[in-house]
Amino acid sequence: MIKVEGLSKNYGLVKAVDHISFEVAEHQNLILLGTSGCGKTTTLKMINHLINPSEGRIWINGVDITKEQPETLRRKIGYVLQNYGLFPHYTVAQNIAIVPQLLKWDKLKTQKRTLELLEKLHLPTDILSTYPSELSGGQQQRIGLARALAANPPVLLMDEPFGALDNVTKANIHAEFLALDELKQKTIIMVTHDVQEAFELGDRICLMDKGKIVQDGSPTELLLKPTNDFVAGFLKEQQLLLEFKTTKVLDLWALLNVSHLSNIEPTVNADLDLWTLIELIKKQKIDTITIQNSANGEVKTLRFEAIMQAFYQYIKAK
């Protein structure tokens, strides 16, 4: 869907982006991860033709982006800016309607779409006549997203979309983001410097450093098979957390030793990742749980300690 080949951007002697290549499949969510200044924003802007590459080519849906009028290209790409870039002189409704208006949608269609987006993003309709300065950070973020989604673009580029939010708001929005059906139909490139966020939201992660892609793979691949010390070092601090998040109960199934023969409630699906499972056990103040493997129909009732033992065995085996 999106293909980048040998892409570079030089500012004088600074190589902001240094010969990178990657592909994003349709409906995939690719994360560009890396510390500040590693060239993430520059890459994103080149894909939207906001910046001309010094070298390399970009295709979207098989079409070289330089073959298209930049304005036409941009109207087909939803872009969420780092600090939202909402127009302060436009109401929320006008902000959301910017691209539909550029595409000359009729009023009714625009209005319908706006209301639809508000509902999906859990925003009240009375927000429509307010101005961005009257909104909270979380609300502004959602309006920025609504604006990018308004004209239903197949591609979404997001530059640190949650970067300015506090942790609680961020966690809520992450959950919503994952639950949003509309986003599942999009090809997304999202930029972040937040490792946790990358692992939570990404199908695939490109870890960048000094303009280069250091590793390109699924979250599990990055975690378990780092290509070099840089990747391992980058993820180290969050290692355990990330492993909990990337490991599903199903992955440990063979290692799980049943603690009780009778089923003890609650029962959960083996699809669950370990992090969520631990949260659940903590919240419900229980020490035993029943897990159902829908793949083979087996059911195991386990004590918490048994699950943890299985997990450490699993990690060691890798």
Binding site: N48, L50, P70, E71, T72, L73, R74, R75, Y79, L81, Q82, N83, Y84, G85, L86, F87, P88, I98, V99, L102, R147
Partner: peptide
């Protein structure tokens, strides 16, 4: 950033 947003929206 507002100007950039204007360009980015097309």
């Amino acid at each position: 950033s507002v100007k950039e947003a204007a360009v980015a929206t097309g």
